[in-house]
Amino acid sequence: MDFKILIKKLNGKLTKKEAIIFNQWYHESAVHRSYFNRLKDNYSQELDNIDVEKAWQKLSQKISKRKKSQAYWKFGVAASIALLVALTIMFNRDSLQNSEPTVVHSDISVGTDKATLTLEDGSVVVLEKGKKYETQNASSNGEEIIYNKTTNTRKSLTYNYITVPIGGQYNVVLSDGTQVWLNSDSQLKYPVSFVEGETRQVELVYGEAYFDVSSSIEHAGSGFRVNNKSQIIEVLGTEFNVKAYKDEEHIYTTLVEGEVLFIAGAVEEKLAPSQQMVLNISNGNMSVMEVNVYNEISWKDGIFSFRRKPLGEIMKVLSRWYDIEVIFENKKLENAGFNGVLGRDQNIEEIIEAIKNFGIIENYEINNKTVILK
């Protein structure tokens, strides 16, 4: 739904064609009706003065900054519209009816580009935004590290590790041209250069990573494999997301485009675009489901996109990005569902305030790096 149509509806200025579009969207689901009614309740005539085109352009540039294919761009467009609406409601401060939150002292900062690089000799290099680093094999501008495009003809491999802490993110371009986006609290093991003619293999030791794999056509048919202690993903050239955190009992593999072969023990399963494989680590059970891809990969574009997510899961995501501890004073809140699209560059107070404004929580307290939800 175009944000401008919603505003024109509120002002009674829809054309016949726009009215048809709105009515189809409005009656499509109870979620849409609730969303629009909440927007209407919080609506201010000041919204007419928002330069929607300029806001749209800014958001589009943000989302497309690292865009490498058309596959997920369409999802980014949809999320941008939702983000405009979400931010409009969130910053309409006159609509707040609940008591003011308690912020004793906040040491919470927004996550940023940072990681540590462990070299083949065991030495550790700190990578961080604004700090350049260069070796004979790779160079970093502080936001990503790019390895030289070389192949290994010696049949022996040397490995590097890149470790992203809580409150960080980092990009890696491997020697074969494969791009990897690493989320907070993640570690990737990979060779400095791959052996020519052999399967290219990396290991997601833990955490979350988005892979845009360089096609096998460019590497004499050599496939690509992502290993994890519980599963193997074999690809020829595709884009997918793997979420395998140490403190979670499930591993989520989401295919964006192409085709992958998922292997866990004696079980093999091919995934199609928009399918997600969920592996239960404790018992080995697996299930495949259709998902909204953008909700799964929006983190790499600087966006939190939550759809019917329990607040407990949401706060786990936020705790990794903002390096915070979250305490639920009311345990029932952990299962409360929330729909929202928010920016990862917003401070934690704005994020929690948005959740509060939607009536999910009554109040909250922030003390240093601890957030208490009430």
Results as ranks from 00 to 15, higher is better:
193 S>Q: 12
161 Y>W: 13
158 T>P: 00
138 A>P: 07
350 E>L: 06
132 K>I: 10
137 N>H: 15
201 Q>M: 12
92 N>L: 01
75 F>Y: 03
350 E>M: 06
129 K>S: 12
366 I>K: 01
303 I>R: 08
251 I>Q: 04
191 P>E: 05
291 V>Y: 10
98 N>S: 10
42 N>Y: 06
27 H>W: 02
153 T>A: 12
250 H>I: 11
130 G>R: 07
278 V>I: 15
115 A>W: 01
9 K>R: 09
210 Y>G: 10
237 G>W: 08
149 K>V: 10
280 N>L: 11
246 K>A: 14
181 W>T: 03
99 S>H: 14
132 K>W: 05
92 N>P: 02
98 N>G: 02
336 A>Y: 03
164 V>C: 11
232 I>S: 11
20 I>M: 00
89 I>A: 09
309 K>W: 05
171 N>E: 10
140 S>T: 12
269 E>K: 15
339 N>P: 05
239 E>P: 01
294 Y>C: 02
118 T>V: 13
352 I>E: 05
139 S>P: 00
112 T>S: 15
280 N>C: 10
28 E>M: 05
110 V>G: 02
10 L>S: 14
86 A>Q: 12
112 T>L: 13
350 E>I: 08
39 L>A: 06
246 K>F: 11
135 T>E: 13
310 P>M: 02
76 G>N: 02
126 V>A: 11
84 L>N: 01
159 Y>E: 06
323 D>G: 12
253 T>K: 06
151 T>L: 15
80 S>A: 06
150 T>L: 15
312 G>D: 00
64 S>F: 04
159 Y>M: 04
345 D>W: 06
62 K>M: 07
282 S>F: 07
283 N>T: 04
358 F>N: 13
296 E>I: 01
317 V>H: 14
140 S>E: 09
373 L>M: 15
226 V>K: 06
280 N>I: 04
372 I>V: 03
115 A>N: 04
159 Y>T: 04
313 E>Q: 13
241 N>M: 05
295 N>M: 00
309 K>I: 11
191 P>Q: 03
220 A>I: 12
296 E>K: 13
142 G>S: 12
44 S>R: 10
258 G>M: 02
30 A>P: 00
145 I>W: 05
270 K>I: 02
